[in-house]
Design a protein around this nucleic acid. Structure first.
Length: 551
RNA sequence: UGCCUGAUAGUAUAAUGGUAGUACGACGGUUUUUGGUACCGUUUGUCUAGGUUCGAAUCCUGGUCGGGCAACCA
């Protein structure tokens, strides 16, 4: 029944391949993170793409950790990545590691040496960079380039055996020092690093570079469509060259544009800085664009998948408006989140004609969008209630459908009340509002015949629970912090977090973490992982859309 | 300066030589016991100059603009 959606360019390539019987119609993708940081929403785009493609074409997706640089990587990251992918709703066919292939990749290197296509170079990093030339001048060969196969084989073995310190030698591919593509000017295949690897321990002291590990891993796994981001386009030449010279399974690389989003940064390096320098609390700070941050903020896997679906896949640079992300979570939560009442900026309202000490229970459905309201809960009502400070105005403008002297509103799920009086303190701040209720207007059995324009939320004073509520705003003040002059951290929004004390209806003391709630008229909120029975903590996921603009 | 890429409303993304459409945003309206939701409507676009063609967003040529490439990172 699904609408016929047009294909993105990668789907077109795949369908063409299937039509041509390429790889016997097999589709095998992979998601290949380096375990050196937490996944962010940009990775979610890649995850949804890779797993989505495999699912659509009855294929498989491997989760492969690109762990070829032991100094930056850690099992902490491996675990978080697995958790995030799973949470997003995807299952991988195989959990694999580039480090699983170190023996095989080493053998590939020997094979290239034997073909005269790789050599050991004793130059320093600076010398190699210098000899590479510039984009407009070709590189120049050095004396090491002519070493014999036997000599190279021997030296490479000695590198592996730990006979040289870090940086003393590298293994380079003998490609073309005059290539207009800088990456083809004899790229480094192996470097010496006497470092402990989180999986292989101290078994190795040489590690393959990206260009000599990624494509080889793809090939070993018989990956048919190796999808990466645009900045790897120049690497494709090397990717293909190695596969060709090694005569191994010809995986093919395709590139799409990475996700950029307004008012945020998306590079692991920058996100790491935010954490390390204390601008945010942690990788899963609800202001972070990480998967774990969004999860803690109250985003659902479904909303993230929907977002990734809507942003599309193409090759041009893009800057997605965060409002689309917000739309996706509102759309999801509107259908599923239970409604509750919470007063974030309270002022006391006394129902003067309601008996002192009396209490009533009023029923509130869980979700008006769901059939039958999805059940409901009882809400205690009494003579004193908290209402929102900005739901009262001493001098109300024309279209203000809330409380003010002589004005009437409905208390959600309860009675219509009329404002008779109010009290101010010495500074002119409202301290108390006096109202009378209309007994015949009880919600569900209203015989009063009165129609009011406005409905406000409220919480009974003696029944209210206190809660800490964290109101989040965008982390940056400008649309594209990475593109501004100076340090991106200069553009951090100092107002990105407001912590307030709120009064919430008693039912909210019993909610579970991981479930989204709508605080009526205020937004979507979820219980924070740090919340306890004695100290409730809620995070605001997103506000409600606000069509009310003051003139 | 060399090479590689890309260019369609504010932002994304379709149209694969034949009516420039969709979503988000913005604006306006209807409904509403959430100024939410839902529904309806309005708004704004093919980078540029030539060429091919009955017909070009699409093909060709030149230009302009954006992004990437000179890590023992991935």
């Amino acid at each position: 029944m699904s609408e016929e959606r047009s294909l993105n360019f990668i789907e077109e390539i795949i369908e063409e391949d299937i039509r041509n019987g390429k790889n016997e119609g097999r589709v095998h993708t992979r998601f290949p993170p380096e375990p050196n940081g937490y996944l962010h929403i940009g990775h979610a785009k890649s995850i949804c793409l890779n797993f989505g493609l495999a699912k659509k074409y009855n294929g498989k997706t491997n989760l492969r950790f690109d762990d070829t640089n032991p100094v930056t990587e850690d099992t902490e990251y491996v675990e978080s990545i697995k958790e995030d992918v799973r949470w997003l709703g995807f299952d991988w066919a195989n959990e694999l590691y580039a480090s699983d292939y170190f023996d095989q990749i080493y053998a590939f290197a020997q094979k290239l040496i034997e073909q005269g296509l790789a050599y050991v170079d004793d130059s320093t990093a600076e010398e190699i960079a210098h000899q590479k030339g510039t984009p407009t001048e070709p590189g120049v060969p050095n004396q090491y380039r002519d070493r014999t196969v036997a000599e190279n084989l021997n030296l490479f073995a000695e590198m592996k055996d730990g006979m040289y310190p870090d940086g003393a030698k590298v293994l380079r591919a003998k490609v073309d020092l005059g290539s207009p593509n800088m990456l083809m000017r004899d790229p480094i295949m192996y470097r010496i690093k006497h470092a402990h690897h989180h999986r292989t321990g101290d078994a190795w002291c040489i590690y393959p570079m990206y260009d000599f590990a990624h494509g080889q891993s793809d090939s070993i796994e018989q990956i048919t469509h190796s999808i990466c981001t645009l900045e790897f386009i120049p690497h494709r030449a090397m990717y293909d060259w190695f596969i060709d010279k090694l005569a191994i399974f010809p995986s093919q690389q395709y590139e799409f544009a990475r996700l950029n989003m307004t008012y945020t940064v998306m590079s692991k390096r920058k996100l790491l800085q935010l954490v390390n320098e204390g601008f945010v609390e942690s990788w899963d700070d609800p202001r972070m664009p990480t998967i774990s941050g969004l999860r803690r903020r109250g985003y659902t896997p479904h909303s993230l998948r929907e977002f990734c679906e809507r942003i599309g896949v193409a090759k041009r640079e893009n800057m997605i408006d965060v409002s689309l992300l917000e739309f996706c979570i509102r759309e999801d939560l509107n259908k599923t989140a239970w409604r509750r009442m919470a007063v974030l900026d309270p002022v006391k309202c006394i129902i003067t004609n309601f008996a002192e000490g009396a209490e009533e229970m009023h029923f509130g459905e869980n979700n008006p969008e769901a059939e039958g309201g999805d059940g409901g809960r009882d809400i205690p009502f009494s003579r004193e209630i908290w209402i929102e400070r900005d739901d009262f105005m001493e001098v109300a403008p024309k279209k203000f459908f809330r409380l003010g002297p002589g004005l009437m509103v409905r208390l959600k799920n309860a009675y219509i009340i009329k404002c008779d009086d109010f009290i101010k303190d010495a500074d002119g701040a409202i301290t108390e509002i006096h109202c009378s209720y209309i007994p015949e207007s009880r919600s569900g059995s209203d015989t009063s015949g009165i129609n009011v324009k406005g409905t406000i939320h409220w919480v009974s004073v003696p029944h209210a629970k206190t809660a800490e509520v964290r109101l989040y705003d965008r982390l940056f003040k400008v649309e594209d912090p990475s593109n501004e002059d100076g340090d991106f951290k200069d553009y951090i929004n100092p107002e990105s977090l407001h912590m307030i004390q709120a009064y919430v209806e008693p039912d909210l003391a019993t909610v579970e973490t991981g479930k989204g709630y709508q605080f009526i008229r205020k937004g979507y909120f979820c219980l924070d992982k740090t919340s306890t029975a004695d100290h409730l903590v809620f995070n605001r996921t997103v506000t409600l859309k606000d069509g009310w603009v003051k003139k």
